[in-house]
Design a protein around this nucleic acid. Structure first.
Lengths: 204, 204
DNA sequence: AGCATAAATAATAA
DNA sequence: TTATTATTTATGCT
């Protein structure tokens, strides 16, 4: 049913031969060769995906929430990644075709519940209605010192190591894990800037 | 696994008497005492804030982008935090009152540009074409000398001071800001004092 | 008044 | 899919 991509276009799209192209890749191309029906279909999916995201955000729902709710109500499992990929059209037309009506139906129902009150929506979605954001943790200077020394030795500790460090410092394990995530992040950003500065040395 | 019970001070609104309440705190209360006009006004702001977020997301813009764009086109500076706090109504009614028309006007214009094509929106949001783009440069030894002398006097310069220093040295403001960050960080990492400092919060 | 960064969310790698 | 990174939002602090 699905036609393989003509090899002449392979250079523009980084796609291993034999793999099915994503919807995003197909809609960005001019409508060549295919029948009108196929083209309209793809355009329809693109339109829906864009709309879906806006409607989801209007309801104040995350991709994770949608995925979990779908997993609960519909049959198979839908991960956050799956919803993300649909919204970005980073899936094959076949998958999109299959997913679209499911999302359409679910979202319409969610909007219905939302009209009856946000509380109803949250019940429908399933999660705890009042999941409060965690209070921001303040690390003591001593703790930061210790964390930094661990980070210098190993920026990517294993789960066990994290547990160990958390225990030593008497902080929540999750808090320590996130600290390492963010620390790696800031380091990466900083080093980017530094690299850039070195490259631009001539300028001033 | 032991779940520590946080000191539940969250049940009541943590508001020191004498401080102005935020819009969010006011609208969540029943309309007591105030005139009708005041109530309608608050409700209006709440409605707009909610709507603003949806419209912003529909345009695919981040809080950071909005803040930066506003800073460029309107007079004063608008940080990402400021936009965030407006959307969450975590500001006083007075501030909200002042900010609302600015956001309203800007967003309407942004939507106009978006209708003409997303490229136009990005131009509108992004760099002002009229303002010449500052050159990204690295630090000369002379500049580092000056920076160090500033750092000795004050390791934590205000935004204005950073702007001032950046202007004096003819460097990008962000580059100067990051320089101070890194300088403080280095100092903190190598310093072994503070041993006697009292342990702070979130230690369980 | 808004920076610094912790936490949450989205996107990508494995 | 699950695990991790990248990006964005939110907030403690001064």
């Amino acid at each position: 049913v699905v036609k393989p991509v003509p090899p002449s276009l392979a250079s523009a799209v980084p796609l291993a031969s034999g793999e099915a192209p994503t919807v995003g890749q197909l809609v960005s191309k001019p409508p060549q060769g295919g029948t009108d029906e196929e083209c309209i279909n793809l355009e329809e999916i693109r339109e829906f995906a864009k709309n879906f995201k806006i409607r989801r955000l209007s309801l104040g729902l995350t991709q994770t929430q949608v995925g979990q709710a779908l997993t609960a109500t519909e049959g198979p499992a839908y991960s956050q990644s799956a919803i993300c990929r649909f919204e970005k059209l980073d899936i094959t037309p076949k998958s999109a075709q299959k997913l679209k009506p499911v999302l359409e139906r679910w979202l319409a129902e969610a909007e219905l519940w939302n009209q009856k009150g946000q509380q109803n929506l949250m019940e429908f979605v399933g999660g705890e209605p009042s999941k409060k954001r965690k209070r921001r943790t303040s690390f003591t200077p001593q703790a930061i010192e210790v964390l930094n020394s661990y980070f210098e030795k190993n920026a990517l500790p294993t789960g066990q190591e994290i547990t160990q460090i958390a225990k030593e410092l008497n902080y929540d394990r999750e808090v320590v894990r996130v600290w390492f995530c963010n620390r790696r992040q800031t380091l990466k950003n900083t080093s980017k800037i530094n690299v850039f500065q070195v490259q631009q040395q001539q300028q001033q």
